[in-house]
Computed example of a mutant assay.
Amino acid sequence: MKKIIFIALFVMLLSACGNDSSENSGENGAEEANGTENEDITVVLDWTPNTNHTGLYVARDKGYFEEEGLNVEIVMPGEAGADQMVASGQADFGVSYQEGITEARIQGVPIVSIAAIIQHNTSGFASLKEKDITSPKDFEGKSYGGWGAPLEKAVLDSLMQQENADVEKVEIVNIGDTDFFTAMHQGIDFAWIYYGWTGVEAELRNEELNIVYLTDYSEKLDYYTPVLSTNEKMIEENPETIEKFLRAVSKGYELAINEPEQAANILIEAVPDLDPDLVKASQEWLAPKYKDDAPRWGEQKLEVWENYAEWMYENGLLEEKLDAEKAFTNEFLPE
């Protein structure tokens, strides 16, 4: 996702309000009596706040972090991006993606996935229905609007090869931060979206889409996106902090799973610039997707990491094979 520098004033305001609330006053009193202070933690998002992040805001604003002795600040990534901020220790935790962590690990960047936010890849190549793009073969002769990553062409090529189509016949255009709907009405034929946000927005706009889902064409492309990450130093030196963080976050996402309307309202209150109708509809759609068929929220499988890394290696996106066991861990998830 694209990078924006942004630290929201409402984070500080809501934190201040939370500290004054009767809900937290007992905890603060106990903290003072015990002579202890909450541990300051920074979490960096991958992009502007959306329903992928709901569990984090729920954990913060329902007091779950504070119950664990954590004072958590949620911030936006700088130009370097969330992965670099986490790897360098500028942030303790971050929102990342399996593809990004895989590439980073190969380059020696010490970043590790500690929880899958969503169990299955819900992304695909979307187009307005009138374009009649219903399969990878239909990508030929069309313009694709992307963000300029080599991964994009490799994924297009992988899908198109299954239908004997030629990726060189696709015009790949870097549209940067341009909104999907704006791009579609400015000459771009299709783009890569996540249904849980942009697809749901299309429903609200009454814009009919055709979507070619990655998982319909390759099991290896059913990777974790997004995930929560930390760095190896944090794992080595502060494992208890990670456990506390994930206990709180797990409670946040469990509430989003079981009470999507309440969770949506928490996110709307925390980020008032968001479209309330979109947040509520997206939250309802995502609620069953967070955990899906996993035994608990956040759990990751070795085979998913191995399959996707193998696909990246086969498609020339990795210089060497990934040691998948070191790229992720379920160690810190609550039982």
Rank of each mutant, 00 (worst) to 15 (best):
residue 17 C to W: 08
residue 323 D to Y: 10
residue 29 G to H: 13
residue 109 V to L: 12
residue 70 L to D: 00
residue 71 N to M: 00
residue 37 E to Q: 14
residue 65 F to N: 02
residue 109 V to Y: 05
residue 229 S to F: 02
residue 280 K to H: 12
residue 265 N to C: 11
residue 25 S to K: 13
residue 219 E to C: 01
residue 301 K to G: 01
residue 30 A to V: 13
residue 15 S to P: 00
residue 318 L to D: 04
residue 266 I to L: 09
residue 240 E to L: 11
residue 59 A to L: 02
residue 330 N to L: 10
residue 71 N to V: 02
residue 54 T to N: 03
residue 22 S to Q: 13
residue 113 S to K: 04
residue 132 D to I: 12
residue 18 G to V: 00
residue 19 N to H: 08
residue 276 P to K: 15
residue 254 E to T: 10
residue 48 T to K: 06
residue 145 G to W: 02
residue 237 E to N: 06
residue 9 L to D: 05
residue 26 G to I: 13
residue 192 W to R: 12
residue 282 S to G: 07
residue 11 V to N: 00
residue 316 G to C: 14
residue 308 Y to G: 02
residue 64 Y to Q: 04
residue 92 D to E: 06
residue 112 V to N: 02
residue 17 C to F: 09
residue 23 E to D: 13
residue 224 Y to E: 04
residue 212 V to F: 03
residue 273 D to T: 15
residue 292 D to I: 09
residue 92 D to T: 08
residue 37 E to V: 15
residue 318 L to K: 12
residue 119 Q to F: 04
residue 302 L to H: 07
residue 40 D to Y: 03
residue 34 N to E: 15
residue 133 I to Q: 03
residue 244 K to F: 01
residue 100 G to D: 08
residue 99 E to G: 09
residue 61 D to Q: 12
residue 48 T to Y: 05
residue 242 I to L: 08
residue 123 S to M: 06
residue 180 F to Q: 09
residue 164 N to T: 10
residue 183 A to I: 07
residue 4 I to D: 05
residue 21 S to N: 11
residue 61 D to E: 11
residue 228 L to W: 00
residue 130 E to S: 15
residue 111 I to K: 00
residue 1 M to D: 04
residue 108 G to Y: 07
residue 6 F to W: 06
residue 46 D to M: 11
residue 257 I to V: 09
residue 203 E to V: 12
residue 307 N to G: 03
residue 185 H to G: 10
residue 135 S to E: 10
residue 25 S to P: 03
residue 86 V to F: 03
residue 323 D to E: 14
residue 144 Y to I: 10
residue 332 F to D: 01
residue 252 G to I: 01
residue 153 K to Q: 14
residue 227 V to L: 04
residue 247 R to D: 14
residue 118 I to F: 01
residue 159 L to R: 03
residue 51 T to H: 02
residue 62 K to E: 12
